[in-house]
């Protein structure tokens, strides 16, 4: 049982990275990015393509990939998504859905349908002994650590920095924030840029830990979404805990039957929706 829970938490680390970007974009501009999962897959493929160009090490590939993703996210928001914002969620949903289809088919054309992965070297086989019979892989542990750091970083960014204040202010009242001199178009673009960098990081780890293939995106989107909703929209810590709950749920389901993992995760999500529609950590109304 301990083994299952530990593996679930480690899986949750990856899901946390899947979901932070979604949570960030929704939190700042109420934009639901249906292309989230496909962008994660695209990030994974990008890492796979970049790695051989920079000597093969995934850390170096990541250092190249993240700024690139940041720029792509900024441009995407500035040039496309800012045009879809408004009271009606339909335009942004249709556009990100369309984007999801475009990315999937583009990846299929460029990389073909077969799954690929990124070589992690010694990291992929290394493990650390936690208990008498409990070993955890170094790579999953690293991913969990990065997820924790990313959550903490986002939380601090939001609560302590001027940019974080601007994020929260435009989310509360865009018009008044603009009165204070906030350029919301730019603030939104920075939010999406940050989210896209996190998405790329998630994709990098996904391609290191397992594989990526062009059709994976929608499922990853659902995992990200479930983590956000289970956690509630109160804070990034909520998303982190939601991802842990989802990871453990899937791992428990998987123990019963290899085909049940994802399905059981969905059921836990629906159960949380019934029992606590606002998630485990709901947003407190000021």
């Amino acid at each position: 049982m301990t083994e299952t829970i530990v593996q679930g938490l480690l899986l949750g680390g990856l899901y946390c990275l899947f979901s932070l970007g979604l949570s960030l974009m929704f939190g700042v501009m109420r934009l639901t990015n249906i292309a989230q999962g496909d962008l994660i897959v695209a990030g994974g493929f990008a890492a796979i393509s970049i790695a051989p160009l920079v000597g093969g090490h995934f850390v170096v590939a990541g250092l190249v990939l993240l700024p690139l993703a940041f720029a792509v996210g900024y441009g995407l928001q500035r040039l496309v998504l800012n045009r879809t914002l408004g009271k009606d969620p339909l335009p942004s949903l249709v556009v990100t859905f369309g984007l999801s289809i475009v990315i999937q088919n583009l990846l299929l054309e460029v990389y073909s349908a077969s799954p690929r992965s990124l070589e992690a070297g010694a990291l992929s086989t290394g493990s650390i002994q936690l208990g008498e019979e409990l070993f955890v892989g170094t790579l999953p542990l690293l991913i969990l650590g990065v997820a924790l750091a990313a959550t903490l970083g986002l939380q601090l960014l939001f609560s302590l920095t001027p940019l974080g204040r601007a994020f929260r202010a435009v989310s509360d009242d865009r018009e008044v924030a603009e009165l204070m001199g906030v350029r919301s178009a730019n603030v939104y673009a920075i939010a999406t840029a940050l989210a896209t960098a996190l998405i790329a990081l998630a994709g990098l780890f996904q391609s290191l830990r397992t594989t990526v293939s062009p059709a994976d995106g929608p499922l990853l989107l659902l995992f990200a979404f479930e983590s956000v909703i289970i956690g509630g929209m109160g804070s990034f810590w909520g998303t982190f805990v939601g991802a842990m709950v989802l990871g453990v749920s899937q791992q428990v389901g998987f123990r019963f039957d290899p085909g049940w993992g994802v399905w059981f995760g969905h059921l836990v999500f629906l159960a949380v929706l019934i029992v606590r529609p606002n998630g485990l950590f709901p947003k407190t109304k000021g």
């Binding site: 204040r165 929260r168 509360d172 008044v176 204070m180 001199g181 109304k285 000021g286």
Partner: peptide, 23 residues
């Protein structure tokens, strides 16, 4: 603004700091 329109998710001091955003 009419109706005050303070930022609900910001504290008093953070609201005031937002006022100084333009620098």
């Amino acid at each position: 603004p009419e109706g005050r329109r303070l930022f609900p998710s910001l504290t008093v001091e953070e609201n005031l700091k937002m006022g100084a955003y333009a620098g």
